[in-house]
């Protein structure tokens, strides 16, 4: 008779995980988007901030977002293991144990929230804690395995960084940061479903009720189009509110029209092969689109800041 169960063997195993594996737990690609959107949220209000305070706040927000990614990978290791896209993640591949991922996520969550509170203010820290809670508990533990609206509602977690960053700098939640939140929130469904529509069998095997699995790909394509129809004009709103320049407005309008064009392509695709190709295109473009919008906000605010300093 064996004295230890499989789970206990996993507990007793001596780790061979390197720093690179722990860094992978932070979902670096998601983190890069968080850094950019948080930076835009920090810059969209014309409030001067000490560069070091701004930098450390941004670091804390990024680490907090990464920590929620680690908690997600701890909880979702069972479903990550059966899906092609996620099977090589550190926990399902066995490089990092589930306990290590949990401890890493909890420690980084605590450090990032406390650091943001001490360095910036406690409103920002509370919002960061809420973001981590929303992603790790509300989305990962509850919504993801329960409803096809999982990534719609859960998208709020990914959309919060500009609000957290704005609160870190201004001490309040501004209308401009809420608009940035809305842009990412509405962007998430067409972005994520463009990926999910090609992974129906993966999600089916994992038992995740993604929209294409539950309502079918035709309905999903229609909803993707609806969200993109809201997203394209919403992207221009920062310029209409006077929080971004006319140049931003033009770029947002043109790139938004491009996104809408690709969403129409996905919606009208006559057969699965054309649809798969159109979805792949929309997925790639959606990432570029969001980087472009927030990148332009960051660049034009940096330029005006430099001009003010030089004047």
């Amino acid at each position: 008779m064996s004295l230890v169960t499989g789970h206990e063997v996993d507990d007793l195993r001596i780790s061979v995980a390197g720093p690179k594996d722990f860094f992978a737990l932070l979902k670096p690609s998601v983190m890069s988007l968080v850094i950019l959107t948080a930076l835009a949220g920090m810059m969209i209000e014309p409030v001067p901030v000490h560069p070091l305070i701004g930098f450390v706040s941004l670091l804390a927000i990024s680490v907090g977002a990464g920590a929620s990614g680690a908690l997600n990978m701890w909880y979702d290791a069972d479903i990550d293991a059966v899906m092609g896209r996620t099977a090589s993640r550190p926990v399902p591949s066995g490089r990092v144990t589930a306990q290590e991922a949990l401890a890493f996520g909890l420690i980084l969550s605590t450090i990032s929230v406390l650091t943001l509170g001490l360095v910036a203010n406690w409103l920002a820290a509370a919002l960061l804690a809420f973001t981590i809670f929303f992603y790790a508990v509300v989305y990962t533990m509850w919504l993801k395995r329960w409803t096809p609206q999982n990534i719609v509602i859960g998208g709020a977690a990914g959309a919060l960084p500009p609000i957290v960053a704005c609160a870190a700098v201004t001490g309040s939640v501004s209308l401009a940061s809420l608009v940035l939140f809305a842009i990412i929130f509405v962007w998430t469904p067409p972005h994520f479903w463009a990926l999910a529509i090609g992974k129906v069998s993966d999600y089916g095997r994992a038992g995740i009720p993604m929209m294409p699995n539950v309502k079918g790909e035709k309905h999903t394509r229609f909803e993707m189009l609806l969200y993109t129809m809201v997203l394209a004009p919403l992207g221009v709103v920062p310029a209409l509110l006077g929080q971004a320049s006319f140049v931003y407005g033009v770029i947002a309008a043109v790139s938004g029209a491009g996104m809408l064009w690709l969403a129409v392509d996905v919606w009208r695709a006559p057969d699965p092969a054309v649809m798969a190709k159109a979805c792949k295109k929309l997925f790639g473009y959606s990432i570029l689109y969001l980087f472009l919008l927030f990148g332009v906000i960051v660049i034009e605010n940096t330029v005006s800041l430099l001009l003010r300093v030089l004047a």
């Binding site: 001596i14 780790s15 061979v16 995980a17 390197g18 720093p19 722990f22």
Partner: peptide, 9 residues
């Protein structure tokens, strides 16, 4: 391998 990864961590 374990010693090396522990040192790196």
């Amino acid at each position: 391998e374990q010693a090396k990864s522990r040192r790196a961590r």
